[in-house]
Design a protein around this nucleic acid. Structure first.
Lengths: 341, 341
DNA sequence: CTGAAAGCGCTTACAG
DNA sequence: CTGAAAGCGCTTACAG
């Protein structure tokens, strides 16, 4: 697969290959070419089907026009929607996205960071699972921003949901709509900062308000065994005499679990508790009742992370102070948490 | 951001830079290096945080280790799940994915193909929207396979669902479960080969069987205005005296529309028609009733498209004969199409 | 056991 | 108005 090069074009157009380079890049600083030459070169390039080689250019200019995106799973709508927004946002700036999934495996994360470094991406956005690989990345000086999950120890620039505000927003809705008692479902991962913050926000929002947390149950949180959540909750529900006014899930996996467990109990808003959660999920609007949620503004997260990355790319250092950007959550009103009479 | 090069490593290890290259690549054909040298080089590389430059290597070897994936929208679960499987499949072969979305815009598709060509991807997988850009791509000789939607005129290698078999599978289930009359919902895009094939399969499956198609309705099919589908169907339902035994959607957008329209009618399987569709969708299993569907084996599609691409990459020509690979559909039994008594 | 040299496809001072 | 030359960071015959 012999590719057409700048020399082939030069030959056909009968000019020096540096002329081709300048004409095709419109870099005419001290060079004014004759219209005829320009035309000849462009036609030759067209005729041969010439595409400038990005790798060759990269080696000279130091810019690959590639941006790396490392996430847990590009098949997960949360990440793929962010990727999609990023794709739209960077389109005009001629950047392209190299995307890899870690499957929540820190070793894979390190491999992928290494690989991105080898490919000389101009910038790197990663939703971390652990801190593997970041030190090496930092050492090279690649502009780098983390998203979704902060790595507070690292001091790395971060863009993600304001989880405390998310918890508080949930409390506010519960209060406004007249709910008096709630059950809370959380993942059983102990040290999860995200969950801690959301709970903290919820509790602080509830403070001084006449709403009681009747119980908190922890559920297994592997996306592989989603069924587990429902089973654990169904067990729990058997032991409950009277249900709280509402149940809330601190992640979408939790919320879906509640929905499924209630579904088996012939879920009906007239007799069953209200339901809401943090994090939207696909299907939330087609499910009955459709589920009201505190959601992450994914487009805003994508936008802010690219903005921050650009800022770092344009600065001479690879850190930017005060770059812990927290995006305010959004309430999506659907049917599962109606105002109470 | 001065990057560490092979020369820096060579300097520190006090060897020629060609020695560094060979040691780090383990290319010891006619070169046996002293253990001590090897160790010195590796340590130097480590100490400096050296990453071989993929672009520089690409310029010599002609391989970027980059694979291009162009889809309509990476935020759409259908494509993102394929991307995710591809990511897993290629991981070990050291390839990485450059991903771009066309948003169903043929001009964008062409831009993205051009861009992939510039980046010198070693192979290209695209879910086409029109044939823009393919001729140029073909001319360069990049190994190329199309997925999801065939471009029959082009003769390009293709991997995708066997749509006729999908329609037939639906008919088979309807028959096995004792349904006698159905209503069919299809997108209003006239020349869509995919839909035509599915309908053809459905009809051929129904032939000689005691099932009648009571009506076929066309609905607008823009993913932006999903609501439209429901509205059109709700209108239709008003004009129907007695419902068919079952309704089937020829795409997931159609099926979701049916579900929503029926939902407003207090959908209840005891009194309402059965429901099934072609193409799975996120939420199909949490919805009540959960929706039985004919689905596309996405992992298989990903696997086959990479296999085919590899085959083309390893051959000297960029076409492979008989490369119209049709993947058999899969029935996912859920609750919306129970056997009738 | 190791090195010196050519060259991949470009960009960009420098020169005329 | 245009070209000749150096060099980006590598790999790989060729030579010793």
């Amino acid at each position: 697969m012999k590719r057409v090069t700048i020399r082939n074009v030069a030959e056909l157009a009968k000019v020096d290959f540096s002329t081709v380079s300048r004409i095709l890049n419109s870099s005419f600083e001290n060079h004014k070419y004759a219209e005829a030459t320009i035309k000849r070169v462009k036609e030759a390039a067209d005729k041969l089907g010439y595409y400038p080689s990005a790798p060759a250019r990269a080696i000279r200019t130091g810019k690959t026009m590639l941006l790396g995106l490392i996430v847990a799973d590009i098949g997960n709508p949360f990440f793929s929607v962010i990727a999609s927004h990023l794709d739209n946002i960077i389109r005009d700036s001629k950047y392209r996205l190299v995307i890899s999934s870690t499957n929540e495996n820190p070793l894979r994360q390190e491999e992928h960071i290494d690989s991105m470094l080898s490919h000389r991406v101009d910038g790197l956005i990663v939703a971390p699972c652990g801190d593997n690989g970041f030190e090496k990345a930092y050492k090279t000086g690649v502009p780098l921003v983390t998203i979704d999950r902060p790595l507070p120890e690292s001091g790395l620039p971060f863009v993600g949901l304001d989880n405390i505000a998310a918890g508080r927003l949930l409390a506010e809705k519960l209060n406004n709509y007249g709910y008096k008692s709630i059950g809370v479902v959380i993942p059983d991962e102990e040290n999860d900062l995200t969950i801690q913050s959301r709970l903290k926000g919820l509790r602080s929002g509830l403070k001084g308000i006449d709403i009681s947390i009747q119980w908190i149950v922890k559920v297994p949180h592997t996306s592989i065994k989603r069924n587990k959540v429902k089973i654990v909750l169904a067990e729990k529900f058997k032991t409950i005499n009277n249900f709280p006014d509402a149940m809330v899930g601190m992640t979408n996996v939790c919320t879906i679990g509640i929905l499924e467990a209630l579904g088996d109990l012939e879920y009906n808003l007239n007799i069953s508790p209200g339901l809401a959660g943090i994090d939207d999920f696909t299907g939330a609007h087609i499910v009955r009742p459709s589920v009201s949620v505190v959601s992450q503004p994914l487009e805003k997260i994508a936008f802010e992370s690219f903005s921050l990355l650009k800022e770092i790319m344009n600065s001479d250092t690879n850190t930017v102070k005060n770059s812990n950007i927290r995006i305010p959550p959004l309430w999506i009103e659907r049917m599962s948490l109606p105002p109470r009479k």
